[in-house]
Amino acid sequence: MKRYLNSWSTIIIVFTLLYFLKAFLPAAFLTEVAIYSIYAMGCSFLIGRLGLTSFGQPAFLAFGAYGAGIYLYYFGTNPFVAILVGVLASVVVNMLVGLFFVRLNSSYFTLCNQAFCVVTFFLFQKALVKWTFGDNGLLLISRMDPTPVIDLTSPKGIYLFAFIVAALVWFFYNYLMKRSVFGATCLCVKDNEQKLRFLGYKTYNIKWLAFVIANTTAGLAGALYTVYFCMVNANIASVSSASEAVAISMLGGAGTLFGPLVGTFIFIGLKDIASQFIRHWEVLVGLLLIVVMLAGQKGIVGSLEGYLAKYTAKKSEPTPALTQEGGV
């Protein structure tokens, strides 16, 4: 119970602190961190918990973003409804795509997702240009009405809302990864899929559901992105940004709870700050990624968790199982 409360309270503390960082850092930067970390969370879950690396995340981001964008441009003016429509569009696409993609393993899964990203980019840039306006995109700045309680058309409102949604996403993933049998089965799929079948689990269903959940998280980030930037264009699905979510996940620590948040903070920070001084700021991200991977392949949070576990193990009393019974 104590552990249970601790993890919930940690999430609340982290996001509250991050929210009040606006006293020191630009709100625009922090909003982007909140939205992008949601995007990275899905990818991190796929890599860290299922062992599936996807270079097609921009496609799943784009379906959520265009779902919200098309609703606001053609059908309505309420940004809350737009986000809901974006998420629903994302769910439908992920359910269909997942049926085929989760049959693939490792490299084939990775490349198929990347190919899907290319197809999605073409879809929004060329095939549906009549409705999406291709590279020019859908401009929504005058198409959103102020909303009650939290006004998503105001910078303050979207800032607060992005943090609330991010915290809820973290609550959900905390439950999924640490408390649910489903989360444990995902980890087992990564560890040894065949062994899980021996226990009576149909692993295809597990992978499919995990795929839908992870990529719908990306879709949610896409819908928030549209409402925040008041526009969406085909570049959101560009394959050139396909490695970003993977890099963020690896940097922060794939499969860890706070890895995507730390990774996003560093990534967006380097993008916003270092790009003012260095033209090719991506070099810094690349170098940092290499250093972090060489330090233990667990990312920043994963490595810190490892050190913390060793430290607490040293400090705590040895268990009777270790001292009296011994290893067999």
Binding site: C188, D191, N192, K195, F198, L199
Partner: peptide, 27 residues
């Protein structure tokens, strides 16, 4: 499929002594 066979009550235990490493005994 093997998961159906396991559910029917015919269980296979592999020789490699592989349990799920990241999970506790309880899990």
């Amino acid at each position: 499929p093997s998961y159906d066979v396991a559910r029917m009550g015919l269980k296979y235990i592999d020789q490699d002594k592989h349990v799920f490493l990241d999970l506790t005994v309880r899990e």
